[in-house]
Amino acid sequence: MKPKSKYVLLSIVMLVLGYLISFSYQLTNEKKPGSMSAEQWDKEYESRQLLIEQEEKNLKLQAALQKKQKNVQDYEKKLKKDKQAASGLVEQIENLRMYVGETGVKGEGVQITLEDSSYIPADENANNYIVHESHIFKVINELLISGASAVSINGQRISADSYIFCNGPVVNVDGNQFPAPFVISAIGDPDVMISAFTISGGISEQLVYDNIVVKSEKKSEITMNSILQGDRKS
């Protein structure tokens, strides 16, 4: 082969090799992950903007939701307070109705029995040896001071408007007459009421001094109907 032909052939080989290298390099660049066209960049930018806008909307919605949740919690707290207040009012009303005798009541308490003296000296006035309304008043007042929530005399419920007076050998309570013995029942703390009633120098001793037979005892359960029912049951 002539030297000139050798150089021509070598040039052709080098040209083909250069083209192959150039094509391979361009193809490699096109396949790189970071290599994108302008259209792809626009689409990606648009997607990113939509994502950012959606995230901002989500943040606003989350803030609005938190505000509404707080409003609901505040309303629940207010409702709870109102419910407690209403419950307290209902309880107060029920207690007041119980105190005035409009509702029946049951509970532990005490029972005080007053009897006329069984012995009356011949030269003494019989009125000095029987139970009078003043004696009954003393017992009732002492029981109420000691915390009694309800009181009855021989089963007749006592209210703030009740009246008690003697009528010969009997005692009249709100128009109902009762002979001795007089059983005064009171619902409340039995220990407190008995202690107050039997304290030294107290009502019990005063009644004995007035020649009244006195008996006091605790009761595990006393039942009283309302004044409106008019059922005398103790």
Rank of each mutant, 00 (worst) to 15 (best):
K83T: 02
T223S: 12
A64W: 00
A150K: 10
K81A: 14
K81G: 02
P179T: 15
R157Q: 05
R232K: 06
A85V: 09
I184P: 00
K2F: 04
H132M: 02
V139P: 01
Q84K: 10
G18M: 15
S234K: 07
E94I: 11
Y7N: 04
F178D: 03
K215N: 15
L59A: 09
T223I: 12
E124F: 11
S35F: 11
Y129I: 12
N128S: 08
N154D: 14
Q26T: 13
Y25M: 14
L228S: 12
N128K: 07
Q40G: 07
I203W: 01
D189K: 09
I130E: 02
K106A: 13
D189F: 06
V170D: 09
T223C: 09
A64Q: 06
V192D: 01
N95D: 11
L17N: 02
Y7T: 05
L50E: 04
I164E: 06
P181F: 12
L143M: 10
N211C: 11
R48L: 14
G101F: 03
L89V: 14
G109Q: 00
I184L: 01
V171L: 08
G201M: 10
L27D: 06
K81Y: 05
P169L: 11
I21F: 12
F137Q: 03
A85P: 01
V90C: 00
G107E: 05
Y209Q: 13
Q177G: 11
N95H: 07
S152I: 07
W41Q: 04
G104N: 04
E53S: 11
S87W: 03
G147M: 08
Q156H: 08
N125C: 08
I203T: 15
A150F: 10
K2T: 09
Y129C: 12
Y129D: 10
T28F: 15
V105L: 09
N127P: 03
I203G: 05
G34P: 00
I120S: 06
I136A: 03
Y209M: 09
L27E: 05
A160W: 05
L10N: 05
S146E: 02
A38M: 10
I140Y: 02
A86Q: 10
S146W: 04
S220Q: 10
L228Y: 08
S11G: 08
R48G: 12
K4W: 00
A150S: 15
